[in-house]
Design a protein around this nucleic acid. Structure first.
Length: 271
DNA sequence: AGTACGTCCTGATCGC
DNA sequence: TGCGATCAGGACGTAC
């Protein structure tokens, strides 16, 4: 489920819950395969008496730098397809599908909901060693049309598939890929290398616009969304339903599959 | 290298 | 209403 706006919302929820400054008392891992590094025992032991310094985001990854007695490891969380985080009183009723619990020193607990078990956890000293290659953050200054053009050069795959690569546009997922291409007026099956500089500039701007609006929707929702349920708000404008028409030009929306991912687009203005 | 496909998982939804 | 089939917003390993 989560793309950049959902992950950013999760991060802000953790900050609003004043996670920084709190200390993990350990971890209760309900599905061992979620822990990628180190082994389960090392992971749980490593979180004991680890104090949170900050909550950061890189693409769809949440980074939680920690202070322990003899170092500064980082907890890395990926929400996968169905993940969500909350911080509640330990005695509060637990929502369904909580897989992992991280008890805190103040009587609260960070809960990791993950229905499909595609979430991932790491506890490492050097995050760079486990994170894949990620583009500059599309919401930051580093994500330029020139950089995007360079990463599309020579690529024959459909632009929709390329946008899903985190090395091309970190944080984009299936929905925001469709949304960005819709806003830019670009057909999802165009080969990446066939896009001209003007189209790429438009695409960069559309990605920024779509993600910015996505983050804003969650920010406006604030407390209503707490705890951070694994359900997205509809920050995008594309109808994703049979028979609906394009809000911009009225044509009937079309659906296809790109790399086995459902892809909605307007056949009239996305060319 | 770049591309395409199968796989990991379970809950929700759809069609009969 | 019930039930099997299909679908879901991610990403990685593998094979060509």
């Amino acid at each position: 489920m989560p793309e950049l706006p959902e992950v950013e919302n999760a991060r802000r929820c953790l900050l609003r819950a004043s996670l920084p400054g709190r200390t993990f008392k350990g971890a209760d891992i309900g599905w061992a395969k979620t822990v990628k590094r180190p082994d389960l025992e090392g992971f749980v032991l490593g979180l004991r008496d680890a104090t949170v310094s900050d909550v950061l985001r890189k693409g769809k990854y949440i980074l939680v730098p920690l202070r322990v007695e003899d170092g500064t490891p980082t907890l890395i969380i990926h929400l996968g397809m169905s993940g969500g985080l909350s911080v509640d009183d330990a005695s509060s009723p637990e929502p369904p599908l909580v897989r992992h619990r991280f008890p805190l020193d103040d009587g609260r607990v960070m809960r990791f909901v993950d229905g499909r078990k595609f979430g991932k956890l790491w506890l490492v000293n050097d995050p760079a060693k486990v994170l894949p290659s990620l583009s500059p953050d599309p919401l930051g200054d580093g994500f330029t049309a020139e950089g995007l053009e360079a990463s599309l050069a020579g690529r024959r795959a459909p632009i929709k598939a390329l946008l899903l690569e985190q090395s091309v546009s970190a944080g984009i997922g299936n929905l925001y890929a469709d949304e960005s291409l819709y806003l830019a007026g670009i057909h999802p099956e165009r080969a990446g290398a066939d896009l001209g500089p003007e189209e790429i500039a438009r695409l960069r701007e559309s990605i920024f616009q779509a993600l910015t609006e996505g983050v804003a929707v969650y920010d406006r929702a604030r407390d209503e969304l707490w705890p951070n349920a694994p359900r997205a708000l509809t920050a995008w404008t594309i109808p994703r339903k049979e028979g609906e028409s394009c809000p911009r030009c009225g044509a009937e929306m079309a659906v296809t599959r790109v790399r086995a991912r459902t892809t909605w687009f307007c056949p009239a203005h996305q060319i």
